[in-house]
């Protein structure tokens, strides 16, 4: 995970929370959280990545998020993080609903398919390949890409409150103010702090 995204996420996590990291990868973010004495646990599907995580001393459950998360309900997690994973899921909305069964709050990051460089690639008639979307269309794990507008519509349609949003530019720094007028065009990624009441 890019350090800018990490630091944005860390700002969203209330102190003393018990954090569940969905799609914890090599365990880098979990390690960051542990170093800040934040109690945390990861879920990852890839055995090799979990094994790398073990060397960092963090704890991870091997699990396919698409197969439900009900085992994690009632385990005392109060904040869920899902960074750069939602677009890989077969049932993203179901996953979001499952997250709110586990905790009241979560942070989700998405690559923005409405970003101007992506639109440009599509205008050229090709599926975009970029640093945030590095694989070719037939090899990509990203099967549910969306734009910022799409994602925010999904939240609105499902009574999910967006408590905070951070739009990031190509270097993953927050968008300068004048660009936020059309973040769906200028942001390459977005971070959301979500809540369901």
């Amino acid at each position: 995970m890019h350090k800018n995204i990490e630091s944005q996420l860390l700002k969203l996590i209330p102190p003393q929370s018990k954090v569940l990291d969905l799609g914890s990868g090599n365990g880098e973010f979990l390690e960051k959280l542990s170093k800040k004495n934040i109690s945390c646990h990861g879920i990852e599907i890839d055995t090799k990545k979990i094994i790398i995580s073990l060397a960092k001393g963090v704890s991870v459950t091997q699990k396919d998020i698409d197969k439900g998360l009900k085992e994690f309900c009632g385990l005392g997690f109060d904040f869920v993080v899902m960074a750069n994973s939602i677009q890989c899921l077969r049932r993203p909305l179901e996953a979001l609903n499952n997250i709110f069964e586990i905790a009241n709050e979560c942070a989700v990051t998405i690559p923005n398919f409405g970003y101007w460089k992506i639109r440009l690639k599509l205008l050229n008639g090709k599926m975009p390949v970029s640093s945030s979307l590095p694989a070719k269309w037939y090899e990509t794990k990203n099967i549910h890409l969306c734009t910022i507008k799409d994602f925010e519509d999904l939240c609105a349609d499902n009574n999910i409150t967006i408590k905070k949003r951070v739009y990031l530019d190509a270097d993953l720094n927050p968008l300068k103010s004048w660009f936020t007028l059309n973040s769906n065009f200028f942001a390459s990624e977005a971070i959301y702090h979500l809540e369901k009441k």
Partner: peptide, 20 residues
């Protein structure tokens, strides 16, 4: 193994689980 693992998490223990 999973049952044990989730009981451990519920008890607040650092527990990792992998099916090899």
């Amino acid at each position: 193994s999973k049952e044990l693992h989730f009981a451990a998490i519920m008890a607040g223990i650092n527990s990792s689980f992998i099916e090899l």
